[in-house]
Design a binder for these strands. Structure first.
Lengths: 187, 187
DNA sequence: CAAAAAAATTTACAAATGATAAAAAAGCAG
DNA sequence: CTGCTTTTTTATCATTTGTAAATTTTTTTG
């Protein structure tokens, strides 16, 4: 997915603003298993996914908990770092070799302060992430694990072929054993 | 809580911008049980809570599911409406008589388009909501209902005295009966 | 291709949660 | 205060989910 398409997806941008954004963006390729964002730090870089899949996870008592999958067109960003300037609680790692567009958070901050179109673009970007997160929260609150699995299957069926089930189970808020049971029932 | 304090809490604002915002804000008092936001509509008003408690909920198969409590200093807004301009999925009702500051969404949009400081203020506002939502999602994914209840108690102990337990149970993603059991265990 | 490692499934049992109904407690109107 | 309504708790049983360990399948690596 080309950078123009990704940027415009959040909110239309006048040509000058788009050019200013693009001027700050470079490309990079990372192998599978590479950590893009590490918890406990104030992250200085953000990414747009040109191709590939990543996951965000947090440390829990027993193992880690995947709470987000990013794919083509998504933004990879430590929300906590980005919003509050404080160390984030999430790790983000690539699950496949990924082509990414990358950008310094500080450059983006400068653009936010100087270009109102970019500021509003950033506002929309965060807003869209918020909606997605809120919808997931609600589905966690009143759907069964089986319904959540079926929803995920119909929304992003390719995920199941590209991501280990242990991460999907964790994303659904259940154990891998539970997920196996659900899958067996459906078959 | 005064409006100045609420506005500044999200992000500092230069005096002129603050004044522009304040010029669009009026005050209103609503009784307990009043519906501020109704699902299926594009909401035209947003609120800041001066005093009182509200809850946001969505319709589910069996009854409604509370997914957010708003209290002093919080913003009440249909995120879906606000971000995407599409009809929202949430209702918001007052759980106490509430003193609110209110504002037309359209006035805010105009300010976003014309004042870069307000655009960035709005960006921060949404960002803070996102962090809160994300943290709740993570806690839903890997904490037990009992842990979530204890967390809620320590974070906002007054909520328990001001909100019926049925809403708190729903907010925690469990039934009221389960919540009663948890409360009995702790005692 | 074969061996080793990792991932996924299955099983048995334990713990947590849900559904339902009934009892107890708390809140409210007259 | 009394009676009525609403809220909360308790009890029972069914279902779901978790834990742990063993087994199978898949993937990786030499």
């Amino acid at each position: 997915m080309e950078i123009e398409e990704i940027l415009e997806h959040f909110h239309p941008l006048p040509p000058a603003s788009k050019a200013a954004l693009k001027a700050c963006i470079s490309e990079a390729r990372y192998p599978k298993g590479h950590t893009l964002i590490r918890s406990g730090r104030v992250e200085k870089t953000l990414y747009f996914i040109r191709s590939g899949i990543v996951r965000a996870y947090s440390d829990a008592d027993r193992g880690d908990v995947t709470f987000w999958f990013g794919k083509e067109g998504d933004v990879v960003i430590s929300m906590k770092s980005y919003v509050s300037g404080q160390p984030g609680y999430e790790h983000v790692e690539t699950l496949e070799a990924c082509d990414l567009y990358q950008m310094k958070a500080q450059d983006l901050e400068m653009l936010f302060a100087s270009d109102i179109h970019i500021a509003n673009w950033g506002r929309k970007l965060i807003g869209q992430e918020l909606i997605k997160t809120e919808e997931r929260l609600i589905s966690m609150q009143f759907k069964t694990a089986q319904q959540r699995y079926l929803d995920l299957m119909s929304a992003t069926p390719d995920l199941l072929h590209r991501v280990p089930l242990c991460h999907i189970a964790s994303y659904l808020g259940i154990t891998q054993v539970s997920l196996s049971r659900i899958r067996a029932e459906i078959r």
